[in-house]
């Protein structure tokens, strides 16, 4: 990164930026910086993609046996096939 000091300041605000919750003024400063800093652009794009990949991940299903043992532990076996 060319402008190291500037880039470091911006790093802390990247999370808010990819969430779209960064304050207007900071956001403008960041976007202006991104136009001239290739490395930061790559970091922002790959950070956004990283967060998207995790957020869109298919949740691991809870195995049926785990569900059964949970209800058994809670003495709720009679509700096994409801809900």
């Amino acid at each position: 990164m060319k402008n190291k000091g500037h880039c470091e300041d911006l790093l802390a605000s990247l999370s808010d930026y990819v969430d779209g919750t960064l304050d207007g003024q900071l956001c403008e400063a960041l976007e202006q910086h991104l136009q001239s800093c290739h490395n930061c652009t790559v970091v922002v794009n790959t950070l956004r993609r990283t967060v998207e990949l995790y957020q869109q991940e298919e949740p691991d299903a809870m195995p049926e046996a785990v569900h059964q043992r949970l209800l058994h532990r809670l003495q709720l076996d009679d509700f096994l096939h409801e809900g």
Partner: peptide, 18 residues
């Protein structure tokens, strides 16, 4: 209420497991 607790378990157990 057991039935209500069972409904709570059904609703939240997948998220708690994950």
């Amino acid at each position: 209420d057991r039935a209500e607790f069972a409904r709570m378990v059904a609703q939240y157990s997948p998220q708690v497991y994950r």
